[in-house]
Design a protein around this nucleic acid. Sequence first.
DNA 1: AAGTAAGTGGAGGTGATTCCTCAACTTACC
DNA 2: GGTAAGTTGAGGAATCACCTCCACTTACTT
Lengths: 214, 214
Amino acid sequence: MALRRDAQRNRERILRAAHEVFAARGFAATLDDVAHHAGVGIGTVYRRFPTKEELIEAVFTDRLEDLVTLAEEALAAPSAWEGLTGFLRTSARWHAADRGLRDAALSMDEQHFKKAGEQIVPLLEQIMERAHAEGTLRADAGFQDFPIIMAMVTEMAQHSEGCRPGLYERYLELMIDGLRARPGNGSLGAAPTGTDIRAVMRECVPPIKPAPRS
Amino acid sequence: MALRRDAQRNRERILRAAHEVFAARGFAATLDDVAHHAGVGIGTVYRRFPTKEELIEAVFTDRLEDLVTLAEEALAAPSAWEGLTGFLRTSARWHAADRGLRDAALSMDEQHFKKAGEQIVPLLEQIMERAHAEGTLRADAGFQDFPIIMAMVTEMAQHSEGCRPGLYERYLELMIDGLRARPGNGSLGAAPTGTDIRAVMRECVPPIKPAPRS
DNA sequence: AAGTAAGTGGAGGTGATTCCTCAACTTACC
DNA sequence: GGTAAGTTGAGGAATCACCTCCACTTACTT
């Protein structure tokens, strides 16, 4: 049965508030926060979204789609290098402005969000492959490095946006210059595996449920 | 008056245990942890070190001296570039192996540890200046970038040492290649100021006292 | 206009986690 | 053997997050 009109309106309020609160504090934000921000009772939030996961999923599924679209556009850029770096710059900007989106993007291997994850991985592979073929990307960088670089840059962004917005861009540019194919580069050694990446990503996002055993 | 022999022995046990526990969990470790690890009662720890700060200071002051020595050696390296990158690599290795040392190093502007901070800043300036003069370090990188790079790399190290030890080195090498002076580098824009750095560093370390107001 | 199912609010239960104290007990040393 | 120094760990106090429950309010139906 359809929701009553007031319930529908509250649902939308909650989603909007959740977006703002998660943008500011990431997955670490509490549902109490969301409720107050939305101007509704805590119970109302729990009635509509029985678990934090469900709320997060409702808020960020669409935003992850945007990331997928961004990756598709990167693949269509005039040059592979432009596509690659443009994707890095734009997604870093998005993640810096929305901590919840960052946490969601780093959780793409998790149950929720798995769909977006499966869409974006092949795109990243292609973006990297294209840049390798073009000869602009150093040969020993792989698409596995993508999420790690993003995690590092956006983690710094979280720590610095409050006191010096945009600072993270400086370090992204540094890493981008490090990614250029060039004689005289050092050697990066063995690339991490998919399993490594998944484990590291999980470490980089605050647990949604109360912290596990120590 | 001197400590009784058993008290002296316990004090040493506590320091040793604190080192291990802080190495594993950083400043976020609890004094209860330290006590259990040392095999003494919690009260004993508090009798000897009335606050967490005092214990941290007792454990890490010497280790920070080691960092200062490392910087001095870097300045004496055959080439400026070797000195600079060697310092980055070695200190990153130390920080990856000892999370408490990392937290201490990133707190060098704080009350405790201020002494080491005042010693190391001019050394870092000289290391960078020497590499600029040598022409191997890109002109738009400054010594202010030092702590940020270290914070980024060692934060990744904290997240990855558990599942893939040494992974952080890959990204340090990437940043080092990004630091090389080269035609075709992008532009980094304005360097952060000392005030910026201090604010960001504070954000990167878990608060020693219970978290402040929200 | 009245009935009723749907929706609401938020105090408070539950369970973690941390910091730190204190009073009864033990030990080193003279 | 006396006593000051040292030890212990249960537990007080504070904080924090998740989530439940039920007395109350509201939208919609007839």
